[in-house]
Nucleic acid binder design. Structure first.
Lengths: 260, 260
DNA sequence: TAGTGTTACTGGCTTGAGCCAGTTCTATGA
DNA sequence: TCATAGAACTGGCTCAAGCCAGTAACACTA
């Protein structure tokens, strides 16, 4: 709507941040390069060390830079954005690849996926899960499986899957992580639940400190939170996964009928 | 994966931030309440004013608090999250309400929508738009319409719509904003383009300074960026809107077939 | 030549002080 | 009683100085 006269009385920390940003965006500083130290920036720009530090913090908040205690501040490589579409849940992809939706999508985009089952157990579901799966929120009515997902060795998302106990009981869905070819959704088909529809609820927010640590997130990067509910041909919900995706690594790409 | 012993040598700024956060989350400090001033916090906690200031900045970065020059720092009300589904583009909703997708969705959720056409003109499209609309990126092959969207008087998103010139030329799509009942998509149907599919590409990132200003975003709130492409029954793309949505106000809720 | 210890670098964080600029409140005068 | 000006509050930002803790580089000894 309006233009702002930017450099009218710009504080020194912001001016330095702008200059450094220009060097990064312009290519004078490349991914992996170390910035001059706080003390060097302070000296060469005639400002206080804390003012220089504030400038670098601004760039960190923008995701352009990461500072490491005792080592320095480095220009971040902007990671390649993975795109996740709904076809990753289709039988076609599952049968052609024998892989999980995550693995199929990442490999299709030329990168190296890895997943680790961090935790599995029978639990009482959160209310929002119970509502969507039509199970009791007051009893241990679901199995919870927590997976960590990596691309080229870097954590990119965490997925917490809830499966109604009545579906999972006595099957490998409730036990280990060796789910065989076609992964989770092939086992659901074995149980009579062929995923036909997916409901994707999407929000974004900044990570908590624990989430930022777990996903090794630099400053200035939000989380994309996707609550996926799998439904069969009769639109019965039979599993729900809440994904926390690093927004610098992950995007969504869905095509759908508007009156589904 | 691991647990962290939190309070082992916690810096004073973070300890104060934790205490204040506890008061906010616990209800001792309510939305709209003013925090004690930086100077008061410093005095009552036996720390430096800058240390208190850093504590408040941490809460600002988390979106819990907004600081206002000369006035104070206030606890933010957490806004109610609007949910945008694909049915907002359907003929059923359009005919039942006579409204735009945005208006229909917001009213359905009990709030008050408003939209303002900020800019309209024939332009040369960005590359990613040209690719999706199958038009030339080198000529003025599209009409660009920029809308600002408000809920209860607060800006919540900006939508930039691109329409191929060959569709828009000589119609009200290319002129003003008085589009009549059913808004944009009714006029597209007039031209023979009935939206049947939508492609939604979703990412999240922190806003630029200009975007934060335009959308009046507090600290610690990301943008949900949605690139929507409208396609007709023959899957021809005929319009594209890039939405920048405040992630504290907006979420998406799509149900779709997995093998569309 | 390799290992270890020390030095010199780095970022993390705090302090006390100060000044600038915006907002609010109070007092005074018309 | 109302309006205006000044005082006192508020956050924004910088400065110089210092100490802590992590990392890297260098020198010395076996």
């Amino acid at each position: 709507m309006g233009v702002t006269s930017r450099h009218v009385h710009e504080p020194a920390s912001r001016r330095l941040a702008n200059e450094l940003r220009g060097q990064i965006v312009g290519g004078d500083l490349s991914p992996g390069d170390r910035l001059p130290s706080e003390r060097t920036l302070a000296e060469t720009h005639g400002i206080a060390r804390n003012t220089a530090r504030e400038a670098v913090r601004l760039l960190t908040d923008e995701g352009l830079v990461t500072a490491e205690h005792g080592r320095g501040a480095f220009v971040r490589a902007q990671p390649r954005l993975l795109r996740f579409g709904q076809h990753r849940y289709s039988r076609k992809v599952r049968e052609e690849t024998g892989l999980s939706p995550f693995h199929a999508e990442v490999i299709a985009q030329g990168l190296t996926p890895n997943a680790v089952l961090d935790r599995i157990g029978r639990v009482q579901p959160p209310t929002h899960v119970a509502e969507r799966l039509d199970v009791s929120p007051r009893t241990k009515s679901v199995v919870e499986r927590v997976n960590w997902y990596f691309v080229d060795g870097e954590p990119v998302q965490i997925g917490t899957t809830y499966i109604p106990w009545k579906i999972a009981e006595g099957t490998e869905l409730a036990t280990g992580d060796n789910l065989g070819s076609g992964d989770l959704y092939a086992r659901f088909e074995d149980q009579g639940y062929a995923i036909t529809y997916t409901r994707e609820e999407v929000t974004a927010r900044m990570p908590t400190r624990d989430e930022a640590r777990d996903l090794r997130m630099p400053g200035g990067v939000p989380l994309l939170v996707v609550t996926h509910t799998g439904l069969d041909a009769q639109r019965r919900p039979f599993e729900l996964t809440e994904f926390k995706m690093r927004a610098d690594h992950s995007g969504l790409d869905y095509t759908m009928k508007v009156d589904n």
